[in-house]
Design a protein around this nucleic acid. Structure first.
Lengths: 217, 217
DNA sequence: GGCTCAATACTGAACGTTCAGTATGGCGAG
DNA sequence: CTCGCCATACTGAACGTTCAGTATTGAGCC
């Protein structure tokens, strides 16, 4: 909930303070739309401080992205570690994404830069691509666990199912950012998980079965 | 599949040619990341030509967004008009989104600007917000139709269901843009619809039911 | 058919501003 | 005195925007 704009000095200074401010600015205005001056002003320092801690604007972005991706993945792994029910793990992930998206700009930062970096920063884009791969592979793992324990039906393509689960999360976040007052993110994601689980635990007869080759995600 | 970059002159000139090029550039590099020079060069004209047809950069963006939103909505309405099965209509929408996302940058343009405009352009952001509202309300309408005809179960919150359907589309598109080689968008969206329909047509007993107040979407 | 006039669709150069990045200087702590 | 940490003041390039001028077209008149 930190509000960096306007007033001259905000947040704690130093490298981490600058990075936190940078993340917030990048999340709001994108990389190209955020000037070094803006970050510095919002962080309550001058450009000198910024260029002392970071070689250039791009390196600041890289550091921020890396920090955010690692922190989020650690956060997820930490919370899931002692949940051994796959269904409950999925529920927990959805809850975490919802909370994360609502309480600060951290997930929006990732989303914004993911979209912007696509054609403007090849190596950063690769970073995001790999992050999504890890995220999907993590879900695939959970789903396979559920299958092996006989909790989930076995006639679904795990790769595609993982893509779909992640889609639901990302898409809900986008809609929430566009209209926070109209979209109840927590409820939407909760329903998403329940719908997904209902589909996974259905008697394995009705429609919705998967055809064609599997995706390698 | 138009490739505006590099070579000096491309596409047909004139207002519509400039706008088509602008859409492609904005889709790739975002608004802030696209310079007037870049659009002009890619369109094979000079900056003067651009400022002859559009008051300024922002107005060009507005015109482009408006054109794209209207064209997409007309396209959807046109194709759905003579489909009276709600389930088939949902399938058709998913197919159209997949094709649109794969064959040109038009849907990516909307997605990119949706994310970028959030904190940088209030009125443009409102445009996108309303677009999403219309899109959801359209789906809600289809779902209600399905309920009234006894095709879909009646214990689901239509508003939330619509959000979820749209989430699946948006999220799949994002993942596809990030990794077109790994994500089979057509298959992913096809499975998304089938999963959604399976959940809607399930015997109305199993899990996945909706609690709490409805969203007003 | 030839001539005028005005409108359309641009070009190319310039202007003022903003940007990322740099050079230098200062200051408090050890 | 020096070193970590930062402020101030600056530079050159890139940016959005303006503008004077030009090529082309078509309608209206003699």
């Amino acid at each position: 909930m930190a509000s960096p704009e306007s007033g001259s000095r905000r947040s704690e200074p130093g490298r981490s303070g600058i990075m936190a401010t940078a993340i917030d600015c990048f999340a709001r205005y994108g990389y190209a739309g955020t000037s070094i001056d803006r970050i510095a002003r919002a962080a309550g320092v001058t450009k000198g401080a910024l260029y002392y801690h970071f070689r250039d604007k791009e390196q600041l972005l890289f550091a921020a992205v890396k920090e955010r991706i690692e922190a989020f993945e650690q956060h997820v792994l930490g919370r899931i570690a002692n949940v051994d029910e796959p269904a409950e793990a999925l529920r927990e992930i959805a809850r975490m994404c919802a909370l994360n998206a609502m309480e600060d700009n951290h997930r929006r930062f990732i989303l914004t830069l993911m979209v912007e970096a696509l054609d403007t920063n090849v190596s950063l884009s690769a970073e995001f691509r790999e992050m999504l791969q890890r995220f999907r592979s993590f879900h695939r793992h959970l789903l396979r666990q559920g299958q092996e324990r006989g909790l989930f039906r076995k006639d679904v393509d795990l790769a595609t199912a993982a893509v779909q689960f992640v889609s639901g999360i990302l898409g809900a976040e986008i809609q929430y950012y566009q209209d926070p007052e109209r979209i109840d993110l927590k409820k939407t994601l909760a329903c998403h998980v329940e719908q997904f689980l209902a589909w996974l635990t259905v008697p394995a007869t009705a429609a919705g079965l998967v055809s064609g080759g599997r995706q390698h995600v």
